[in-house]
C-alpha cells in the first residue's frame, strides 16, 4: 500500500513537473551551463489573467489579444552560452524524441552553418493543437511550445514589436 502511494506521488510529481507543456522541455545539463536563461511558463489561466492587463487602445496589445485567443499555454525556454557548441546533437535528440508521430509532425527543418531550426505541429483529431519550435544556434538554444491553435504567419509578423529585452537575434 505504502509503495503504491509512493508511486502515485512520484507520478503526480512528474506530471506536475511537466505542467501543461505538451512535451518535456527541460535540459538540465544545458540549463546548468547557460550564461543567460529565459524561462516563461504561462498556462491557460495565466494567459487569461495576462490578457486582462492588455490595453486594447495599444495596437500591439490588440494583436496579442487576437493571437492568444484560444491558446491553452505558452512555454519558452531559451539558453544562451558564452561559447559555441555547448549543446550537442544528443541534446536536440532528447527534445525530438518527445516530438514524434502520430501526435507531432515536423513541418519545417532548416539546417545551416548557423544551426538548426525546426517547427513541429501537434494534431489532435485532425485539428492543430500545438506548435513546437526548436531553434539551435551556435551560442543559443531555444525551445518553444505553444499549446492550442495559433496562426504562425501572424506570429511571425510580430517579431521584435514589443521592445522587450531578449536574447539578441543574429543579424543575417
Amino acid at each position: 500500500m505504502k509503495t503504491k502511494l509512493l508511486l502515485a506521488a512520484a507520478l503526480a510529481g512528474c506530471l506536475s513537473g511537466l505542467g501543461a507543456q505538451q512535451f518535456p522541455m527541460q535540459i538540465d545539463r544545458l540549463a546548468a551551463q547557460a550564461s543567460d536563461k529565459i524561462d516563461v511558463s504561462l498556462s491557460g489561466s495565466l494567459l487569461q489573467f495576462a490578457a486582462k492587463f492588455l490595453d486594447d487602445n495599444d495596437p500591439d496589445d490588440a494583436k496579442v489579444r487576437k493571437l492568444i485567443a484560444g491558446l491553452e499555454g505558452i512555454y519558452v525556454k531559451s539558453y544562451s552560452f558564452k561559447n559555441a557548441n555547448v549543446w550537442t546533437q544528443a541534446d536536440l535528440e532528447t527534445i525530438r524524441r518527445s516530438l514524434r508521430a502520430p501526435e507531432w509532425s515536423r513541418i519545417v527543418n532548416v539546417t545551416g552553418d548557423d544551426g538548426t531550426s525546426e517547427i513541429y505541429v501537434r494534431m489532435v483529431e485532425k485539428k492543430p493543437a500545438g506548435v513546437a519550435i526548436l531553434a539551435a544556434e551556435p551560442k543559443e538554444l531555444t525551445i518553444v511550445n505553444i499549446a492550442g491553435s495559433i496562426d504562425l504567419a501572424s506570429l511571425s509578423e510580430m517579431g521584435g514589436h514589443f521592445n522587450i529585452p531578449k536574447i539578441p537575434e543574429k543579424k543575417e
Binding site: I133, T142, I164
Partner: peptide, 11 residues
Amino acid sequence: LKLALDIAAAK
C-alpha cells in the same frame, strides 16, 4: 506573455 511571443515570433 509579450516576452514569450517576442521570442517565438523572432524564431
